[in-house]
């Protein structure tokens, strides 16, 4: 069964003041996969995320999501396509209650248009009801229900991380890009999160691409691994195969100067 990949990037390039942060990255992400994006610090992983989600504009290269060109489009358009991302440093909307953080993310809310708000004041109430229920359900999954009415700014670091993930899920993504989702949350919650990813993939067919440094998580929970170093993709494949790839080991040893994949 060879399905078209849900996401393809080809020769993405970006320089900042003469330094090439991403230097011709090319990759495919299989539909319905949980793909890990790894690489030593400075490999350009986060920059790559920013480039394909519209936060930066690539100097060169193409990116397609589900048959649609995404490079050069603004982030909100890409998000509405169903390609949703989270951030490495959480962006909880601190002065808004947790529940508002969640409900904000729901797509297709007619009440977000000023015209509807002014001229069709009832049109959006029903949708708001649905969104509220969904939000509570999702908060339940992440053990955040009791905090629903707290301001997001009062949450702990780990809770914010969960909130950001739950919020991204509210956007009903088909392709979810997570930038170090496990960083800063305790192992129990981390496992819950991973289980949830598996379930979303199984039930709703969501595809995941996540940046991760914890090799145990990568080896046990992803079915494909893409390795970046110095702004390019240097290897991709099954976790086991990538682990023994010569180029990958060199990149880790050369790039980080220590450690590597174990």
């Amino acid at each position: 069964m060879t399905e078209a990949p849900i996401f393809e990037a080809e020769g993405i390039e970006k320089s900042f003041g003469g330094i090439r942060a991403v230097n011709g990255a090319t990759m495919d992400v299989k539909r319905g996969s949980i793909t890990a994006l790894i690489g030593p610090n400075g490999a350009g992983k986060t920059t790559f995320f920013n480039l394909i989600t519209g936060f930066y504009r690539p100097d060169r290269g193409r990116a397609r999501f589900d048959g649609r060109e995404v490079q050069g489009r603004p982030p909100y358009v890409i998000a509405r396509f169903g390609m949703v991302r989270t951030f490495q440093i959480t962006k909880a909307l601190a002065a808004m209650p947790v529940i508002d953080n969640m409900m904000l993310a729901a797509p297709d809310q007619p009440g977000e248009s000023l015209r509807n708000v002014l001229f069709r004041p009832l049109a959006w109430r029903k949708r708001e009801q649905e969104v509220h229920e969904q939000a509570i359900e999702l908060l339940d999954v992440f053990n955040l229900t009791r905090l629903a009415d707290h301001y997001a700014g009062t949450l702990s670091g780990g809770q914010r991380k969960l909130l950001e993930l739950a919020r991204a899920l509210m956007a009903q993504p088909r392709f979810l890009l997570l930038d170090e989702p496990m960083a800063g949350i305790n192992p129990t919650l981390g496992r819950r999160l991973l289980d949830h990813m598996q379930r979303l993939r199984a039930e709703d067919g969501v595809t995941f691409l996540f940046i991760e440094h914890d090799m145990e998580v990568v080896m046990n929970h992803s079915d494909r691994v893409i390795v970046m170093a110095e702004g390019r993709v240097i290897a991709e494949g099954e976790p086991q195969a990538v682990r023994s790839d010569r180029a990958v080991i060199d990149a880790y040893l050369g790039g980080a100067g220590h450690g590597g994949i174990e």
Partner: peptide, 9 residues
């Protein structure tokens, strides 16, 4: 002036 609720395309 139209808020950002229109679908893609």
């Amino acid at each position: 002036m139209e808020a950002g609720t229109l679908g893609p395309g």
